[in-house]
Structures are given as C-alpha cells and as structure tokens.
C-alpha cells in the first residue's frame, strides 16, 4: 500500500538540521580569530557582488541606449559574472542576508512552476515598464538573476530585438537597478554587522553550518534532483540556470567561494585543534571539485541526454558528496550539534 518513498524522505529530512551552539566551540579561544578571517573574506565577497551588480546595471543601460551585438555580449557576460559573484557568497545564510528574503531576491529557486516566466510575461504585457521601486515591491520571482535570465535567454525573447524593445529594456533596467541596490545594501549592512559577528560565539557554528548546508544543497538539490539521483526522474527544469544552460558555471562559482572565503577561517580553527590535515584534505577536495567543474560543459540539462557528459556530472556529484561528508566529520570534531533548519520542507 505504501509507496517506496523512504529514500527520498530521508534525503529531504537529511536537510532538516541546523546547529545548536556547542560547548566545545564556545570554549575555543581561536574561534574569534576564525570569525575575524571570515568577516573580512565575506566582506570582500559582498564587495565583489556589489561591484559586479553595478557593472551589470551600467551594462543594461548601455544596451538599452544602443542595442548592438557587442553591447549584448557584454551584458550577458556582466550578468553571468554578477550571478557568479552571488554564488560565491551564497553559503552565508545568516546576518544581513536574512532581511527581507534577500537571498531569494537574488535568486528565487527552485522554480518548479515557472513563476519567474509568468511574472516576466505579465510585466512584458503591460503598457509601461516598471520602476525599480515597483520591482522591489513585487514577488521575489521578479527580482533576481533568473528573471534577467528569462529576458536574455527565454525562447520567447529570441526575436532579433525582443530585448531592445522599450518595455523589455525598461523591465531589465529596473531589475538590474533593484539588484544593485540590494547588493549595495548587503555590503553596507555586512560592514555594520562586523562587531556583532566577531563578538558573538555562536556565529562560528553558524558559519560552519552555512557552508555545510551549501554543500548539502549543491549535492541533493542543484545536482541530485535534476539528474534524477534522489528518487525522482531526471528533469532538467529543476537545474539552476536551465534557460541559459549555465548551471555548472554557477556550481563552479559556489565551490570557488567556499575555497577562498570559507576555508581560511576553517583552517584557523582546525590548526588550533591540532588537526591541520583535516583542513588540508577538505581544501584539496574543494580544489579538485572546482577544477573538475571548470573543465565541464556549462549546462546540467543537456548532459541528461549525453552519456559522457552525464558521467562527468556524476563524478562531480560524488565529489561534492565527499566534501559534504568531510565537512560533517569536521563539524563533529569541532563539537557542532545540529538542530532545525528553515529550508526543510516538502
């Protein structure tokens, strides 16, 4: 009578865990040093996101003034770089990013029912393009990189100058302005958050947990689900950036972010514990996985029908799983205890 859902349920529930402050981490006097590292590295990352978002905003305006091929190429590149800049700092799921669902403002995903597409179609059907303020008040599905991806890559936008039309261009500009505003606010708020972050022990655990959750999400949601490895069937629409077929480029950026933003602080913690080899091993694994991803074709969906490309993706999936496992081991070593997680659910 029962459907065989056990594996999938476990997979889903596997994410249902968060950290509780742990005694051994609290007692560790190297923890402030690690947070010092992390705060600086994350500040740089938010700075890079802000810069990239401003370049994107300028690029959109340039294209709308003169819709040349060169401007379109540059716009596409700036859009991708800004999205990658977001991916590199996406593991930070605490602090200013928690205000006003900012993470979803950057990237509403997964979008199983094509809410992004429907929101864009509804804006495009209006008489006037929205202002950035109107975008700010609308659904998170209208606000981020996937909304821009729709305008740049959706089949319905592939006419010679569909994007150059005033409504479409105005919509794109409003979204890029809102994105740049959000990125700027994030950077400022992160700086202001510094004293509190550095002075609060529990953020050591929170940072570790953010990285762990990022790896879990990467393994099960960003790779496993679209590839059909978590119980359902393969479905390319469940991948990020399926319209532009750039899912793997985003994964690469997330791995790079963990490597240069998360790893240094982790190394500090593990060195103090006399376990530098754990950090070295984790770092080497991150590096391998990132380099592997960099050499792969950019999309997940096209790989579903291509044996060689699918095999390469499976390799990445396994590597990410190992990284997740390594970080769990490190977490235990550091006394991390897991509690509830806001991203749990059906």
């Amino acid at each position: 009578m029962m459907t065989p859902r056990l594996f999938k349920q476990l997979g889903r529930l596997g994410l249902a865990a968060l950290t509780l402050a742990s005694a051994s981490l609290l007692a560790d006097d190297t923890s402030p040093q690690a947070r010092e590292h992390w705060h600086q590295a994350i500040e740089q990352r938010y700075g890079a996101l802000n810069d990239a978002s401003e370049r994107l905003e300028a690029s959109a305006e340039r294209f709308c003034n003169n819709a040349s091929d060169a401007h379109r190429q540059r716009l596409t590149r700036d859009w991708m770089e800004a999205w990658q800049a977001w991916q590199a700092v996406r593991f930070v799921d605490f602090g200013p990013i928690e205000q006003n669902s900012r993470a979803w403002q950057m990237q509403f995903w997964p979008d199983r029912k094509n809410l992004v597409g429907r929101k864009m179609q509804s804006w495009l059907a209006r008489e006037e393009a929205p202002t950035a303020e109107q975008i700010a008040e609308d659904s998170v599905a209208s606000q981020g990189f996937p909304a821009l991806e729709y305008l740049l890559f959706d089949d319905s936008m592939q006419g010679t100058d569909a994007l150059a039309q005033p409504i479409a261009c105005g919509l794109m500009s409003a979204i890029t302005t809102h994105l740049a505003d959000t990125a700027g606010a994030l950077q400022r708020d992160w700086q202001r958050f510094g004293d509190h972050y550095r002075g609060t022990q529990s953020y050591t655990t929170a940072t570790l947990h953010g990285a762990l959750l990022a790896l879990e999400t990467l393994e099960t949601k960003r790779l496993g689900e679209p590839m059909g490895l978590t119980g359902g069937s393969a479905n390319g629409y469940l991948a990020e950036a399926w319209r532009s077929e750039r899912s793997v480029r985003l994964i690469e950026a997330s791995l790079r972010g963990l490597e240069d933003t998360f790893l240094p602080g982790l190394r500090t913690l593990l060195n103090a514990r006399g376990k530098p080899e754990l950090a070295a091993e984790f770092g080497a694994g991150l590096d391998r996985a990132r380099q592997g991803a960099a050499e792969m074709a950019a999309g997940v969906a096209p790989a579903l029908d291509d044996r060689d490309r699918f095999r390469a993706l499976q390799g990445l999936y396994v590597q990410v799983g190992q990284l997740r496992h390594q970080l769990e081991t490190i977490g235990r070593e550091l006394g991390m205890v897991r509690g509830f997680n806001s991203s749990d659910g059906d």
């Binding site: 529930l13 249902a16 509690g339 509830f340 997680n341 806001s342 991203s343 749990d344």
Partner: peptide
C-alpha cells in the same frame, strides 16, 4: 520544531 519552522513557517 520541523513542522513549526521548515514546513509551516517556511
């Protein structure tokens, strides 16, 4: 906790 946070609130 799971019903409260991830499922219902989330």
């Amino acid at each position: 906790g799971s019903l409260s946070l991830g499922e219902l609130a989330g």
